[in-house]
Design a binder for these strands. Structure first.
Lengths: 238, 238
DNA sequence: TGTACATCAGTGAACGCGCGTTCACTGATGTAC
DNA sequence: TGTACATCAGTGAACGCGCGTTCACTGATGTAC
């Protein structure tokens, strides 16, 4: 490990790898996930097509790395939002999460599409891997949020009858282990919270709000305020 | 117009055209919108690639026809639901709309993706066309729904401040012409209702609920009941 | 009813293209002594 | 510090493939008289 020198090669390698990924995402943003092409990336980098194979063993490898990166970045973003919420109140945590999620999605629409949109054609995602692990982290963050809100929100969910068997074992066991006091209805609320953010973000990212509304953020904020209110949480300013 | 005989050719032509579209959608379901290929369609129909050009002038033409069909089918479905709702009550209309929308999306996931997911690579949608007209019809149905519910739902939206200028002119004028009594906050509610259905449906169609929940329909129903409740509408059974 | 002509769905071969991937190679960078 | 060797990013040519699209053609179906 002859530090400074060897890490020069390593650094160049890391930079090139990052550039390949960045260009792949850029192309995806323009034309959908099908347009990720090793040859096009190489062209843009001023390299020969074959040179990419110094960095990724195949196109599928690149897509897998991309996917893992994106899940990781999203999970980090949301965990950070949870940690740095202005106060510990459930309302603040929910709003911080919602803001962070939207900010990430709007700043990185390609990433959002890669994870939540159509699959890359011809790419078969590995059954278990970094993506599954990150999905786990995302669920954990959402469950933490609902757990914080549940003491105040439980009443508003009184009419919802759920059993643990309504959920897949992996989600049910995650919930029961991390938050033993939470009932199944709280897990349902967690998924509905997620979908509520997702609906507005997906419409915005895919351009369906463009012809409807000038400031999608305002609509998103209003919906989140409505959520806070109907859950019976304390208003934001305390 | 030598009826029976000439319409034989016309019928065969219509059947072949429909088959081309059906196969295109089927391929899209398997591999995303990028996988719509004239050659693959011709192969599956036992024809030569060039034969497709008897029915569509180009691949873009096929995609445009597909998109128009899908928008039309969705608009027809939702308009029918509005017309045949069990009673005229706002609650019944909202639930009928929500059911019809989900039923359509789950029965036709390819269609849902074509409209709400990634674009077909290399396809530039025409600026004005059947798609825009159908989108208009969809907005009109949603506005009708909110108009029916507004007398009861207005109170729950008291905190929402909207101006007409918050919306794009096309949407604002559609709302003001069709329902002159509706305030801007009702249009916002309309978009939020749409996005609320969309969130759960998009997650389900794209497979993100598969690892979470056994019966996504139950979650969707629960969310719609919650919506009804928080809007202050009368419960479903009257 | 029969014949001459028009229509037009479908053929088969060809075009040029961009793709992922392989392979023998070059040459600069880094390592060991 | 200098030399011999190893590593490895990148080259350039080639492969086979599927694609959209064009084009001159054939032959069955439909039309007009």
């Amino acid at each position: 490990m002859g530090d400074a020198t060897q890490s020069r090669r390593a650094r160049l390698r890391a930079e090139a790898t990052a550039e390949i990924k960045a260009i792949a995402l850029k192309h995806m943003a323009a034309d959908g996930p099908a347009s990720i092409s090793l040859r096009a990336i190489a062209r843009e980098m001023g390299m020969t097509a074959g040179a990419i194979y110094s960095y990724f063993a195949s196109r599928d490898d690149l897509v897998a790395a991309l996917t893992a990166d994106v899940y990781d970045s999203l999970a980090n973003t949301l965990e950070a939002a949870h940690r740095t919420a202005p106060s510990g109140s459930a309302t603040d945590k929910v709003l911080a999460h919602a803001h962070a999620y939207r900010k990430w999605a709007i700043a990185n629409p390609e990433e959002f599409r890669l994870v939540y949109g159509d699959p890359v054609p011809g790419y078969a995602a590995p059954e278990a891997g970094a993506a599954q692990e990150a999905e786990h982290r995302l669920c954990a963050v959402l469950l933490g949020l609902v757990a914080a809100a549940w003491p105040q929100a439980a009443d508003s969910q009184a009419g919802c009858d759920y059993e643990w068997s309504d959920f897949r074992p992996s989600l049910a066991s995650l919930a029961r282990e991390s938050f033993p006091d939470l009932p199944p209805a709280a897990v349902a609320l967690c998924l509905r919270f997620w979908s509520r953010m997702h609906g507005l973000l997906a419409l915005e990212v895919y351009g369906h709000l463009r012809h409807m509304v000038g400031d999608p953020e305002k609509l998103y904020e209003a919906d989140m305020q409505d959520l806070i209110r109907t859950l019976g949480l304390a208003a934001a300013g305390q």
